[in-house]
Design a protein around this nucleic acid. Structure first.
Lengths: 286, 286
DNA sequence: CCACGGGGATCAGTGTTCCTGATGCGGCCA
DNA sequence: TGGCCGCATCAGGAACACTGATCCCCGTGG
């Protein structure tokens, strides 16, 4: 369970090849083979099927552990390295698509003039902050008013709410519910939905938050801009949960507040905590 | 950043002594000293102050990472070991104090007749399940109806809701609000509270869930039985949020439903997932 | 059916790592 | 100031991990 072995294992599993993993990691094929053999001997389980190279069920299980472990090790190293030698240069800002707008405002408040902006997915942004690929992150998402956004538990981080606004359902003007003041999401479980996990509330989250089945995607929208999604809603492809502000100046669309479950759209500012008061253990409970 | 070095580091930091850590780990003091030196050289930071031995700020930071990392490594090993050789013997059930009652019901549904029951804190139970110290865990806590309980993200685990009931505020009969049908917690932020983190909703959680300051503890109750807490509430030491069922047959107390935030008491059954469909990555996002 | 080729397994050898035991050295206390 | 406790340092030997060479298995094509 040496991290080197885990890293080799993940590379082999990903590339489905011992030799290719050896090239990627700068080892010989022999070394890779010995790494896997050592892991399998240590755990007493076959982790990879050979010819073709495919994880066994036990290997798949180990992969699920290895990713977070290696990620946390990288995060620890990056954080401590930052403490040892603060980085000069332009401020590197990472932001999810719906949080990009907030980056400009952030720039005003920072000392450093130069700034590089990098767009990331919601899943990847916390990792980028933790591993020092960006200096600060602007993460957006939907949650209950006082719940944290998920995915921010990779280590000590300073999380502040940058902006919070109501969540609304975007509807075509012609929709029967377009005139309503507010609605309960569960009532729309069986409506047509567009799953746009980058720029709206992912349907999986709506299912979880309401506890209702449904919220099945007729259309999946993988874009990172709201324009395309709004056009799809306007043309009747389906509904989407969006921040209220995203629908301003869109007369062809109606925005109806989500009253139940209580849901807001929030942009959080993630930054590594400076060497301050003690060690605020992550949200890990460990 | 070898886990062996991290383990040594955590032991030294905990015991505040190189020699004591050496004894605990079965090394010589020399080896421990070299471990710490290697870590400090690797990261380019002093991690421990000597004489007395105390973590530096950077060391404290590393400790915050090391705990979860070592925990996950242990969880991975335990899980894979369980796959390699299923454990015989009595079913080991772990339960938090408010979930103990559920253990009896659980016993009826299991094949194995013998059963050992072990009470754990909410923070420790998920760890015990993950590291195979118990076979299944019954974890209780308070959360919004469809939110997961915190602390259950140590690896692939099968979480099922075992029981769910309303959360109520326990009040003395004489309390002015005792007759109410329901109330908003935020209105009670400035009331006198008893912080009983084992057998009621911890005040820190109430602060987080309401977003309100307050909920300061006049009395802290560390016991693991509800009886003592209920007595304290009855005699006016303060209020507590409890599962509705805990107040049944207690005429000296009033139970008023918590309407806002929406909060339920839930008992979840945690068990390691059997080798089934693929690798359900934890709630990690990584 | 057999020859071939790709790719993982195995093995011996070597450089490095890591631990032990001995010793050095600096504070703390009497 | 001397003794002692405890961390640092050093040299040596055992264990480990990697390389290069070779083996072996299996799938493929003639």
């Amino acid at each position: 369970m040496d991290p080197h072995l885990l890293r080799t294992f993940t590379a082999v599993a990903r590339l489905r090849s011992f030799s290719a993993a050896a090239v990627e990691l700068g080892y010989t094929q022999s070394a890779v083979s010995q790494h896997i053999a050592a892991l399998e001997a240590d755990l007493g389980l076959r982790l990879l099927q050979r010819r073709p190279v495919v994880p066994t069920p036990a290997g798949a299980r180990l992969l699920a552990y290895a990713g977070p472990i290696l990620l946390r090790l990288a995060a620890a190293r990056a954080d401590l390295a930052r403490l040892a030698a603060p980085r000069p240069g332009p401020l590197r800002v990472g932001a999810t698509p719906l949080a990009v707008a907030a980056a400009a405002e952030l720039a005003a408040g920072e000392r450093r003039v130069a700034l590089t902006l990098r767009v990331a997915t919601r899943a990847d942004l916390p990792r980028q902050v933790a591993t020092d690929e960006v200096d600060v992150g602007l993460l957006d998402g939907f949650a209950a008013p006082n719940d944290p956004l998920p995915g921010t538990d990779l280590g000590p981080a300073d999380i502040t709410v940058h902006r919070q606004e109501p969540a609304v359902v975007a509807l075509p003007r012609s929709h029967p519910l377009a005139g309503r003041r507010g609605l309960a999401l569960a009532d729309l479980a069986l409506a047509r939905w567009i799953d746009a996990p980058q720029v709206s509330a992912p349907l999986s989250q709506l299912r979880g938050a309401t506890g209702a089945d449904g919220f099945r995607a007729d259309v999946t929208y993988d874009g990172a801009d709201t324009g395309g999604l709004l056009a799809a809603v306007a043309t009747g492809h389906g509904l989407a949960v969006l921040p209220a502000g995203a629908l301003r100046g869109r007369p062809e669309l109606a925005a109806v507040a989500v009253l139940d479950p209580r849901l807001v759209h929030r942009v959080e500012l993630l930054r590594p905590v400076p060497l301050g008061a003690g060690s605020p253990a992550g949200r890990d409970g460990g």
